[in-house]
Design a protein around this nucleic acid. Structure first.
Length: 619
RNA sequence: GCCGGAGUGGCGGAAUAGGCAGACGCAAGGGACUUAAAAUCCCUCGGGCUCACAAGGCCCGUACCGGUUCGAUCCCGGUCUCCGGCACCA
């Protein structure tokens, strides 16, 4: 067992430190499932002892009409009456046979049995019948609840099923028809002690909760408590494939192997079959199994459980930094240089398990000084999956599987890579289109023809002369777009800009080196093989990948003219072309002339001008 | 049921601190080149108009209904659909 629950609060709290998709943050929060409430003791009416319950709604304590224990709860044997013993026993056996899955699937009808015992409500002294029911889980909270059918849907359904009383303590709903569960509206009623020493009547539930919690604490009847859905992590599997634990058993005690005996590796074998005893297959490998304790030299037996598949994925990103280090997990200097991971691209199927387990290990390693950051992965992006051409999930049974190797054989690695980036946003799920790959292949062919002639030599259209202003502007616009889009992972729009550039160059008679060469550099992360080839043909030798990234001049990214749309009452009526440096007065004169037909000689009520963007006349 | 995300041409998708909807690509149609085809190059390409000889013009259109605004794919309220997650967690 790994005590991940000890880290629950930090795992929740530190989600604030990372830049992750909201859906993933939500999933992690829900998975941890922190809830604040109170633990309250209900003393048993006819025996010594008390039932401790956890509730997030102590404000409804006066509305409790019965108690429920999980069937496995140890107090069941204490409270059960002689008369009810058989019924309780039968129910316990039946629910023990149900798997967790069955208990969840058969959720429609709630079932339970009265135990014959009673507990006392600490706030009003009422005797409440104690039931057992499998809608209460032993593994959450205290395994016991106070049931408030008026204000809890599950208790309401159960009360209806077994004709138990429903008592309203929050006015605002119609509790005979449905449970009223809102905490931010409604008014507490019927909730005062008989001597009137304490009352929460008249409050809204969210105000009543802290008040009654405080009172319970003062009276020694309850205490504020926090519960989590997150469970401790069963970290053992009975399989061969998995890291073995460096533990030996001596006289019934587990002892860790000393560090110099690490790493412990799996023994080689052909026998991976289950041991037959419930232990892992390692239990049958006697030679490996029997050993001596290196500390005491006593005979010892190795631990036969292995680690689950998540073990390696919890720290691989650390080991990748320093994979050959034989004395440490990794060199602290390298750790400080590389960590944390700036960008983690991975499937959303890992939103909870891997990404929560890895964060947990990272924090443990942080606490013992191995890592220097509280969180391992700063920015997280989930890439979308590629669907088949029929827009369905790829699967053999549907026969819509596309094999990337075949595509690479047919179109080349650059084209397939480029198409995958061009098909749409990185995070989106999108269908494969072999036609689309053909389109991208045409683009790469066109890039080639812009620079290379029929004989495979540098084209004579590539010239050392100075580029035209238009070409230079286009280059700067392209550098800007591609640079910014790469930064934001918008590869699809970066590629469309390169297509626009290439379409222009195709039309041009002369293609100056001063624009062609930077373009090849822009293309290189997208189509590295082609770019390398072109860079060589252009007569350069150090690899294209070692060139500095091109920079742009913002002044060069704006054109000589701009188009200003003219609106009348917000409807587009005309467009005018003006020089980029034109001022409002000049533009307005032209705009009024264009809009004259709609203005009908009258002065507009209002004139809206958005600088260099648009004119709108309100009449 | 609850939580999160998304609905834009025939298709994949562009464009949001509210300001020209449909960039780029695919498919389709037309043309040039060719004996012919492929390849290539050029043009058209949301819908409607008993508007126009034409250049062009007008109306509708970003899932649906309503609101805010001079102006809404974008903001607000409601509805529907799809995708992902959770599912008796007191």
């Amino acid at each position: 067992m790994l005590k991940i629950t000890a880290y629950a609060d930090r795992l929740l709290e530190d989600l604030k430190l990372v830049d992750w998709p909201t859906s993933t943050l939500e999933m992690q929060k829900n998975w941890i499932g922190r809830s604040v409430g109170a633990e309250v003791d209900f003393t048993l009416a006819d025996q010594k002892g008390a039932i401790r319950v956890f509730t997030t709604r102590p404000d409804t304590l006066f509305g409790a009409t019965y108690m429920v224990l999980a069937p496995e709860h140890p107090l069941v044997d204490v409270v059960v009456s002689n008369k009810q013993k058989t019924a309780v026993q039968t129910y316990r056996e039946a629910s023990a046979k149900k798997s967790d899955l069955q208990r969840q699937e058969l959720e429609k009808e709630k079932t339970g049995v009265f135990t014959g015992g009673y507990a006392v409500n600490p706030v009003n002294g009422e005797q409440l019948p104690i039931w057992i029911a499998d809608y209460v889980l032993m593994s959450y909270g205290t395994g016991a609840i106070m049931a408030v059918p008026a204000h809890d849907e599950r208790d309401w359904a159960f009360a209806r099923q077994y004709a138990l009383p429903i008592r309203e303590v929050i006015a605002g709903g119609t509790v005979q028809e449905a449970a009223f569960t809102e905490t931010n509206r409604g008014t507490v009623v019927n909730s005062a002690t008989s001597d009137d020493a304490f009352s929460i009547n008249g409050l809204t539930p969210d105000k009543a909760i802290p008040k009654i919690t405080e009172w319970l604490e003062k009276q020694g009847k309850g205490i504020q408590a926090v519960n989590y859905k997150l469970r401790d992590w069963l970290f053992a599997r009975q399989r061969y494939w998995g890291e073995p634990f460096p533990i030996v058993w001596v006289d019934g005690d587990a002892r860790p192997l000393p560090e110099e005996r690490l790493p412990l590796v799996l023994p080689e074998t052909h026998n991976f079959k289950p041991s037959g005893t419930g232990e892992s297959p390692l239990a049958n490998l006697t030679e490996w199994l029997t050993t001596t304790d290196p500390v005491t030299n006593k005979p010892a037996r190795r631990e036969t459980n292995t680690m689950p598949q998540w073990a390696g994925s919890c720290w691989y990103y650390l080991r990748f930094i320093d994979p050959k280090n034989s004395t440490h997990l990794l060199d602290p200097a390298k750790e400080r240089y590389w960590m944390p991971v700036d960008l983690y691209i991975g499937g959303s199927e890992h939103a909870v398990l891997h990404l929560l387990y890895a964060r947990f290990w990272h924090k443990v390693l942080f606490d013992i000084g191995v890592t220097s950051t509280p969180e391992p992965f700063m920015k997280l992006v989930h890439q979308g999956i590629v669907l088949g051409e029929d827009n369905q999930k790829m699967s053999k049974s549907r026969g819509n599987v596309v094999n990337p190797d075949e595509m690479i054989d047919q179109f080349g690695a650059d084209a397939v890579r480029l198409y995958e980036m061009f098909m749409g946003p990185l995070e989106a799920m999108k269908p494969w289109s072999t036609r689309g790959v053909e389109g991208v292949t045409r683009f790469l062919d066109r890039v080639w023809r812009v620079m290379v002639d029929e004989q495979g030599r540098l084209s004579s259209s590539v010239v050392p002369t100075a580029p035209s202003l238009d070409h230079e502007r286009l280059l700067h616009q392209t550098i800007k777009k591609v640079t910014e889009d790469i930064e934001a992972l918008r590869f699809n729009t970066a590629i469309s800009q390169m297509m626009i550039f290439t379409n222009e160059m195709t039309k041009a008679q002369a293609r100056p080196r001063a624009v062609i060469e930077p373009f090849v550099l822009l293309l290189s992360p997208f189509a590295p093989h082609l770019a390398e080839e072109l860079w060589g043909l252009l007569g350069h030798h150090p690899s294209v990948s070692q060139q500095p990234w091109p920079t742009f001049d913002p002044a060069m990214t704006v054109g000589e003219h701009m188009t200003i749309p003219i609106q009348v009452n917000g409807r587009l009526r005309a467009k005018i072309e003006v020089p980029t440096e034109a001022v409002r007065e000049d533009i307005e004169r032209l705009a009024r002339a264009e809009a004259a037909e709609w203005l009908q000689g009258k002065e507009p009520k209002k004139v809206i001008y958005v600088d260099k963007k648009l004119f709108n006349f309100v009449v």
